[in-house]
Simulated assay, not measured.
Amino acid sequence: MKNKLTALMIEFSNLKLTRPASDKIRIIEIIAVALTATGKFVFVDYLNLRLTYVIVTILAWLIYVIYRYKKDKLVLKDWGFRTDNFTSVIKLMLPFAIISILSFFIIGYFQGSLNITWHILPLLITYPIWGIVQQFLTIALVAGNLNNLKCMKLKKISIIFITAILFSIVHYPSTWLMVGTFTLALFYGYVYLRVKNIYALGLFHGWLGALFYYTVVNQDPFADVFLKYL
């Protein structure tokens, strides 16, 4: 009985304890994110294979997430894939979201770019999925890893600023998208380093991003990505 109890305690301990990722792993992850971002310029901007790029990116990183999870059962929570603080993070982000939406409509009204159609409805459902992926790559793997590096200690404000610049560059050459994503990443970086929740960040990213396209950018991603295959 004593031996069984000891074995159960050891097993429980192994489930609860996690070995922090090494600096080598963190740096490799940051480089992998940079390569993924570079692929956007090749496959989306040059080859015009947006949907293919999105699908391949999601599948490739999903495989990596599963691999890391098998090595460390707590890595998902460490990255921010958690639900225990979802409501509190939503409340924290809500004022920013409201101000953003009002700004979108004001800018769209004055520049004549308001173009709300039914196409936004499927994007409000599907875009948060892509938003979660983007927040995982940009905020969790870049900002999170930079914050946890042992070989190089950066101030949080520097980490947030670096992450925002990188996220903005990925959206080149659209000026509005670069400005919007830079502002978004500044706030999201602050939220993530304060309280981690990729689900909340991805949800707001998807909804705000979809609305941003149809009010400020005057583009129709649904038509660009899906309708050409119909």
Rank of each mutant, 00 (worst) to 15 (best):
K2T: 14
E11K: 14
F12S: 12
I25Y: 14
R26H: 01
E29H: 10
I30G: 04
I31M: 01
T36Q: 10
A37M: 15
K40S: 13
V42T: 13
V44A: 11
D45I: 15
D45V: 14
Y53H: 06
Y53F: 12
I58H: 03
A60D: 05
L62E: 08
K70P: 02
K70N: 13
D78C: 03
R82S: 11
N85K: 13
V89S: 03
L94N: 03
P95V: 07
F96K: 01
S100A: 15
F104C: 05
F104G: 02
I107G: 00
I107M: 01
F110P: 00
N115E: 09
H119C: 01
L121G: 04
P122H: 03
L123I: 09
W130A: 14
G131C: 06
Q134W: 00
I139Y: 00
I139M: 04
I139W: 03
G144Y: 01
N145Q: 06
M152T: 12
K156N: 13
F161Y: 11
I162N: 00
I165D: 04
I169C: 09
S174M: 10
L177M: 14
L177A: 13
T181E: 05
T181A: 11
A185V: 07
A185S: 14
F187W: 10
F187A: 11
V191K: 04
Y192C: 05
R194S: 14
K196I: 02
I198H: 00
L201T: 08
H205P: 01
W207H: 06
G209V: 00
F212T: 03
V216T: 02
N218P: 06
N218E: 11
Q219Y: 02
Q219S: 12
V225C: 08
K228M: 12
L230S: 13
